[in-house]
């Protein structure tokens, strides 16, 4: 089968959500945890459950922005020798099965660098990825790679943190394509029980700078919390909490994703 026309599904989804004033629900999965077949099944399930954007996390040996949960899922996946080619394969498969949910590659820079920056941008797009998030790449480094991604219409999403100065945030927001990933707390990824008290003020400040959607990630773990955060932002990203449920079994993760999706979409 010929690959379908490489349209950027992320942009489509975002303008659709804007028009319909809908919040965006983004789920993070670790590629290959518990195994590649499960990852594929979960991606297809996510689309059915109303997930708006999928972040496919590529495991790295040294995930220094991640807490214990994603460290664990990454280690497990790496024991099975998951490679970037597997990431492309999985996305190709789900696209062949008709999946139209935007999928974003989430991974540390070294595996991309080892694969070859230019080839990566090209192959990721061909496989069916719509965007890319590299948590250890700020807009200052690897400008040629950023240009390659732009050329291939692979949206580069950058992160803004609570410690980012306004002047810097403005630059990052300008560079970020599709949406802006707002890190809700100081620290690594991992489920937290509460909503940071200064989140609303910070988001209000940032949203003055741009009409791009701001999705909040790091620490989002419960439906009520996801609902509350969605009200002050344009949506949420849930990662570690999904993996925690996945440790209990695929069905547990699926039920959790359904519940979270409802909480975000029907406040």
């Amino acid at each position: 089968m010929k690959p379908m026309k490489t349209k950027n599904l992320l942009n489509g989804k975002i303008s659709q959500a804007k028009k319909g004033k809908q919040k965006l629900f983004c789920v993070f999965l670790t590629l290959g945890y518990p195994n590649l077949v499960a990852t594929e099944r979960l991606i297809l399930f996510c689309e059915k459950a109303g997930v708006d954007i999928l972040e496919l996390g590529f495991p790295f040996s040294d995930p220094l922005a991640d807490g214990p949960t994603i460290q664990f899922s990454s280690e497990q996946a790496l024991k099975k020798h998951v490679t970037i080619k597997d990431a492309f394969q999985v996305v190709r498969h789900v696209r062949q099965k008709g999946c139209r949910m935007p999928i974003v590659f989430f991974g540390y820079f070294n595996p991309i660098y080892a694969y070859g920056k230019k080839d990566f941008a090209s192959d990721a797009k061909t496989a069916g990825f719509d965007g890319i998030i590299v948590p250890d790449l700020t807009p200052e480094e690897e400008k040629d790679f950023q240009a390659d991604c732009r050329k291939k219409d692979l949206s580069q999403i950058f992160l803004v943190a609570p410690t980012t100065s306004d002047a810097r945030a403005s630059k990052i927001i300008h560079k970020s394509q599709g949406f802006v990933y707002y890190v809700s707390l100081r620290g690594v990824t991992g489920a937290r029980k509460t909503v940071p008290s200064d989140l609303k003020g910070q988001l209000n400040q940032l949203r003055k700078m741009s009409r791009k959607p701001f999705l909040v990630g790091f620490g989002v773990s419960m439906p009520e919390q996801a609902r509350d955060i969605s009200k002050m932002s344009d949506g949420v990203i849930v990662g570690s909490a999904v993996i925690e449920h996945l440790k209990l079994g695929i069905r547990s993760a699926e039920r959790f994703i359904e519940k979270m999706s409802q909480a975000v979409h029907r406040p």
Partner: peptide, 20 residues
């Protein structure tokens, strides 16, 4: 000024650390 020694060095960090 950005910490590069030829092609090496630089600053590949999570955004949270940029300010520090």
């Amino acid at each position: 000024s950005k910490g590069h020694f030829g092609p090496y060095g630089g600053r590949y960090i999570p955004e949270t650390l940029s300010r520090a």
